[in-house]
């Protein structure tokens, strides 16, 4: 009897990822068979709906609009969050003042921000951007504060002893440490940005994937709804794989071979 090379089969990480996706699709198909087309359209029907969306010319503009909403909000959140967080990490009074504010903002449900920003900014594109910024900002802020606060005091003293200029102090002493806190938070914030952007678009009806979802809902078209969900998930995966991961890898080369880090 030929022996199955389990060890070699188990080695390929990509193989396991494919297996995981295959299981999800199989469960989806099983659900479709059990509950029928209306509740859960089959993966194939969803793909067909996606194809129709693309053929209609609805897909491209929707993705662009959502990307614009998510990215503009994310950018604002990143800039304001890291700047204020950096200051709060260095100054105890500023931290004492801003930290409760951030906690409060995190506590407000994202959907509440969407409703408020619709009331404030009406149907303009600003509503989505604002919701995203205000939902993601505090997450970035907290990470930046924590990162700046925990910079090694010994390294700061060393830099002071060598009379290093402020620019080098920030770039060489603070930034690499802060990034190890900030990058994971930025990953979370970016994922959050897409979701909140879609949510805002769904309620505001100013175009984008959320608007498409709203239309699909109005038409009671489950396949189309599923198709839009697939689009959002695919976008998230693409951004994670081609933006967040490479950035993280670039800034953390020095960690290679540290205890507890993969080589």
């Amino acid at each position: 009897m030929p022996r199955i090379p389990w060890r070699r089969l188990a080695a390929g990480e990509r193989r396991w990822a494919v297996l995981g996706i295959a299981i999800i699709v199989a469960l989806w198909e099983a659900g479709h068979r059990a509950y029928g087309d209306f509740v859960l359209p089959s993966p194939l029907a969803t793909l067909a709906a996606l194809g129709r969306l693309a053929a209609d010319g609805a897909l491209g503009p929707a993705i662009l609009t959502t990307a614009r909403d998510a990215c503009s909000g994310f950018l604002a959140a990143t800039l304001a969050g890291s700047l204020l967080g950096g200051i709060a990490g260095r100054s105890r009074p500023v931290r004492a003042m801003l930290q409760p504010l951030a906690t409060m903002l995190i506590g407000v449900p994202a959907i509440a921000w969407v409703v408020l920003s619709l009331l404030w900014f009406g149907g303009s594109g600003l509503a989505a951007t604002f919701s995203v910024a205000v939902a993601a900002g505090p997450v970035v802020f907290s990470a930046a504060t924590q990162g700046t606060r925990t910079v090694d005091g010994g390294l700061r003293t060393m830099a002071r002893a060598f009379r290093v200029p402020a620019g080098a102090m920030i770039v060489d002493v603070y930034l690499p440490h802060v990034l190890s806190y900030l990058l994971p938070a930025l990953g979370t914030a970016l994922a959050m940005s897409w979701k909140v952007a879609v949510m805002a678009e769904l309620l505001s009806g100013t175009g984008g994937i959320g608007d498409g979802l709203a239309t699909a809902r109005a038409e009671v078209d489950t396949a189309k709804t599923m198709a839009w969900v697939v689009v959002v998930v695919a976008l998230l995966l693409v951004v994670e794989r081609f933006v967040i991961e490479p950035v993280r890898r670039y800034f953390e080369t020095w960690r290679r071979g540290l205890p507890g880090e993969a080589a």
Binding site: L155, M158, A161, P165, A168, D172
Partner: peptide, 26 residues
């Protein structure tokens, strides 16, 4: 004035060369 500290206090994210160069940043 320059120090050699009891702990080396090297920047973990800079190579040995980068660390020595950092002392010259000023």
């Amino acid at each position: 004035p320059t120090f050699v500290f009891q702990d080396p206090l090297l920047l973990p994210w800079r190579t040995a060369r980068g660390n020595v160069a950092f002392g010259l940043a000023g």
